[in-house]
Structures are given as structure tokens and as C-alpha cells.
Design a protein around this nucleic acid. Sequence first.
DNA 1: TAAAACTTTCAAAAATAATTGAAAGTATAT
DNA 2: ATATACTTTCAATTATTTTTGAAAGTTTTA
Lengths: 168, 168
Amino acid sequence: MKLEEAKMEFIQTWGAIGSAWGIPRSMAQIHALLLSSNEPLSTEDVMETIQISRGNVNLNMRELINWNLVSKQNKLGERKEFFSANTDIMDVAQNIVQERKKRELKPVLELLADLKQQKIQGKKEEVEHFNKMINELEDFIKQLDQLSEIWLRLKDNMFFKKMIKVLK
Amino acid sequence: MKLEEAKMEFIQTWGAIGSAWGIPRSMAQIHALLLSSNEPLSTEDVMETIQISRGNVNLNMRELINWNLVSKQNKLGERKEFFSANTDIMDVAQNIVQERKKRELKPVLELLADLKQQKIQGKKEEVEHFNKMINELEDFIKQLDQLSEIWLRLKDNMFFKKMIKVLK
DNA sequence: TAAAACTTTCAAAAATAATTGAAAGTATAT
DNA sequence: ATATACTTTCAATTATTTTTGAAAGTTTTA
């Protein structure tokens, strides 16, 4: 199998997954292309390889940079901008999760906080059920934070890894 | 604040989050309604409260049942079907993650496995870079699995929780 | 068995999200 | 200063996903 084919397959699949998780297909595809590429690519390179418009590349590239997944490079003597992906996959995943947590989980946290400090009026049993649910949800979100801490640790804490093995 | 208002707010927010993560708004809304409701609801109840069509309720309810987030109930003497949500939030989250892992992560795993056992042809350095990336990605997905194991454990392993505190 | 009560299906419509591409904007080189 | 090389923007278009609603299907009751 030729490298080019392999790349294209990877780009396609990555795009489909992104799409299923609410990330624009093109954004995921660009990311996949940069991940699999040895050296920085220009806007033209990207346009050509994944066959999308200049505007699309520009827009999604900016987004990738915002998410800290891609950075701009300047090639000596070249005027064009080049882009390369952050290749530490762990960082990649952390950044994606971090970014989405920030964007889409925040509203829940705010809502939960708001609902918790309000006195809710209604039938006793119904209100109790509702409050219980809200509380559980908050506990859960706290657990998520715990979990992401562990994740950070997993990256380089050998002792911790062994710990897990033992507990399995 | 009245209970009904609080519910509606929760339903709205939950719907928006679902939507941002690639889950149909109505599906998330129905789920939120059932979560916040004390007792099982009928299709009509749901239609009325969140103002969506019968077909929509039916379709998404089936999906929620598939995901193991909701189950059918029968009220004595009633012909209609009623629905209630699994209210253990931890289970809820586990099921959502499980389900999505099954659906959307599987294709990556298959692709990675496929790409790993193929001999890829191209410039040495480029191929090396590509293979490295594929390998890292696989490691990462393995870590995700590890992480979900830990999560399960977090639920009820006090010792483990303390462990984390110490390491913090 | 037929009517009533309810559920499911699915083609069409609506809503939403992603993409294009050409025009406007910027920076660099001569 | 102006031409060139490149980047950004955004209204319009296109693609995709979600939702509707009425017809077909199913089960229960009498």
C-alpha cells in the first residue's frame, strides 16, 4: 500500500469520526492530514490534497490553532504560511477535551449551580426527585474532573500505572 | 422558581449540550425530561411538554432504549406505554460513552489495525513519521480503555479514591 | 370480527450546519 | 508608490441532519 493511499484512508476515517462527534468534517480532515505529514504544509497543499476550498481551509485552520492542535510555521525564504500539527497524541486529546469542556460543559455547570441555590417550588416528592438528580449530576461532573487529573498522571507516572494493574 | 420552569431550563440546556456533541437535540431533551420526572411518562406527555411530534418521540425513545438510558414501563390498567429514565447518573454516562465507543471508535480501531499490519511504501522518513503517528494513536486508545476501567473503579473503590488524593 | 387505542414507519419538509468562492484586506518586495 | 503574493471575510449555496405528520401497522377490547 502506498503512503498516499494510507494517508487518504486515515483522513477519511478521522473526518467521519469528527463528524459523528460534532466536529466539522473538514476540520478533522485537515487535522488528520497535518498529523500524518512529515513536514509543514501550506494552504494550497491542504486544498489540493483534501479537495476543499481556500475559505474552508482558512476557517478551520484558525479553529485548529485556537484549539492548540496546530501551529503556524514560517519557512525560510518563503512568504507563504505553513502549518503543522502538534504530534503528541496525548496533548492532542487533552486539548480537544479541554476545549470542549470549556465550551460546552460550562453552561451545564452554570445551570446546575443556579438550580442548586434556588428554592424550587412544587409537589414535595417531585421537587425532591429533581433536586436529587441535580445533585447526582454535579457529583458526576466532579468525578469527570477527577478523572482528567488521573489522566494527566497516567501520562508519566509509572507507579500509578502499576497501581492500576494490581487493582484490575 | 417553579418546578416546571426548572425542568424546562434543564431540558433546554441538556438539549443544547447533546446537540453540540452530535446527539440529536430532541433525543437529549426527552432524556432530560425523563431524568427530571418523578414517574414514568407517556408519549403524549413528552410530546406536550417539549412540543415535538409523535414520530420524533417514538424514534428517539427507541434510540434511548437502545442506549440503555430509558426503559418501558406498563402502568396497571393502562394500555399506553410509559417510559422512565435510568436515574443512576454514573450508569447514564457509562452507557453513553460505551455506546459511542462502540459506534464511532470502532472504525478507527479497525483502520489502525489494518494500517499497522500493512507494509506502507514511500519515502523512508515520511513512512516512519506516519507509522509513528499510527502507533501513538493506538497507545492513546489503549489508554482510553484503561481510563474507563479506572472510572468503573472510582464508583465504589474508596481506597482508590484516597490513592488519588495522595498523589495530587 | 370489527372498532378503538395505541405504536411504528418513512417520504417529504424544515432546520441547521458546513462549504464555497469571489471580493476585500494585508503585507512584502521592487 | 504600486504591483505581487498571499490571507481573510462573509453572503450565498449546498449538504446534511433532524423533524414532521399522515398513513400503515399492531394489539387490545368488546
